[in-house]
């Protein structure tokens, strides 16, 4: 069984928001919903030593997801391959998972009354394709693959680089790793 993970190399990200747009268009998200925003950090420093970086965000598909435990209806689920998703037909829109997620990665769909989130484009994974945000990133800043496979690019990057996981102190064990 694979263990999906994503590595985001922030050194390569130029903040073009292609991933945001690709996700929004292909997944047909409502106007008020963004699964993977790209935030701007900085500029920091003192002139002339200034720096600016971009931080692509998305659901962290945590190994220890607080949203799944918080869901009273079992609509929020975690697959064996690590993908965390919402089964829409079971969701009552109680927003417990939104409140439990420390990454702000879940969204209330006002049209359906339920909660929606990034699911690593599991419909594409099922046919061997990459998530839209990864496929569209022309800078190759997003790398996706099986963490359990030692030959995969994500496995090599995670083991060969200094990576960080966001809010690691909360022990959610995200499957999204950042290289900076």
């Amino acid at each position: 069984m694979p263990r999906y993970a994503m590595v985001i190399d922030t050194r390569r990200c130029i903040g073009c928001h292609s991933c945001t747009a690709a996700c929004k268009i292909h997944n047909e998200l409502p106007d008020d919903m963004v699964y993977n925003p790209v935030t701007t950090v900085g500029p920091v420093g003192i002139f002339p030593n200034l720096s600016l970086s971009f931080l692509p965000l998305l659901c962290m598909h945590c190994d220890n997801p607080p949203c799944v435990d918080a869901c009273p209806t079992q609509a929020s689920q975690q697959r064996e391959d690590g993908v965390v998703f919402v089964e829409d037909s079971k969701c009552v829109g109680c927003l417990s998972c939104i409140m439990a997620c420390p990454y702000g990665a879940r969204h209330h769909n006002h049209a359906t009354g339920t909660v929606a989130k990034c699911d690593f484009c599991k419909h594409r994974l099922a046919i061997g394709k990459l998530p839209h945000c990864v496929a569209t990133c022309h800078q190759k800043a997003r790398i996706f693959g099986d963490l359990e496979d030692p030959e995969s690019e994500v496995s090599k990057l995670v083991n060969g680089n200094r990576t960080v996981r966001l809010l690691s102190e909360l022990d959610t064990q995200p499957s999204v790793f950042y290289i900076y």
Binding site: P72, A75, K90, C91, V92, C94, L95, T112, T114
Partner: peptide, 13 residues
């Protein structure tokens, strides 16, 4: 709730 008619589901987990 966003889906009041599914309220019974809160007993499930």
């Amino acid at each position: 709730l966003g889906k009041p008619f599914r309220a019974w589901r809160v007993f499930m987990n």
